[in-house]
Design a protein around this nucleic acid. Sequence first.
DNA 1: TGTTGTGACTTGTTTTTTGCAAGTGAGAAG
DNA 2: CTTCTCACTTGCAAAAAACAAGTCACAACA
Lengths: 126, 126
Amino acid sequence: MSRAPQPAEAASFPRSPCPLASTLDLVGDKWTLLVVRDLCFGKRLFREFAESAEGIPSNILAERLKRLERAGLIEKRPYQTSPVRYEYRLTAKGRDLLPALRALAEWGNKHIPGTWPLPGVDGGRG
Amino acid sequence: MSRAPQPAEAASFPRSPCPLASTLDLVGDKWTLLVVRDLCFGKRLFREFAESAEGIPSNILAERLKRLERAGLIEKRPYQTSPVRYEYRLTAKGRDLLPALRALAEWGNKHIPGTWPLPGVDGGRG
DNA sequence: TGTTGTGACTTGTTTTTTGCAAGTGAGAAG
DNA sequence: CTTCTCACTTGCAAAAAACAAGTCACAACA
């Protein structure tokens, strides 16, 4: 299947040389950082991300995983054959987002009532 | 857990008790954190935000300023009469986002070529 | 052999949000 | 008056998100 006329996801240029704007070009939407959060805390399978409390739609999840893979924040690799199944894992580049994730979560804990603290990172074996 | 149908903009409830998800409900889009960045670095006027390099559309800017004000991250106040003109300023709650901003920017500096470092905060005149 | 099931997506359609251009209203300036 | 700026607002087309349903590869029964 051919790639449709630029699913917009290919904002292949940054809006500006600002490191914040450039980062937001990649992860600045409602869902992407939640997928990264799940990856940080040990989830690896499509189904696992889809089952998270926020209820990401499956087409959005598929698109975000592709974007993150293309950008080198995650890797997709088979973990079984027959049927072939893939898992997603953070690269070092992706793991580097954790401090930002934590900072945003800390803000939420401090200023939004009803939020619970994030658990510790699951460095999980592979 | 049912998702109530909501009048668009006012996602008045959090998607989940996760502090990251809740924070993203408020500032998790392409533009909001760039406005906060501008506020952190001394900008206060509608026109100043609009003139930033990324080129935020004026209707989006107006909406984001309202949202931030309603959420208590910024305050709008008159700084001159005749004609009455307003300026926007971060509250303590808004300023608390700076660490997250910096963390995201640091990630950009490290992983996205062509980005320049953020300047220091402008606690500014006025 | 055929039926049912599961995981991981894809496709189609509707709804919402975004982006862009143009317009508005209160003055200020000439 | 006429023109100009600032700070928005409005209208509308285009893009993205949401939702439901479908597909494809295989696995497990019966």
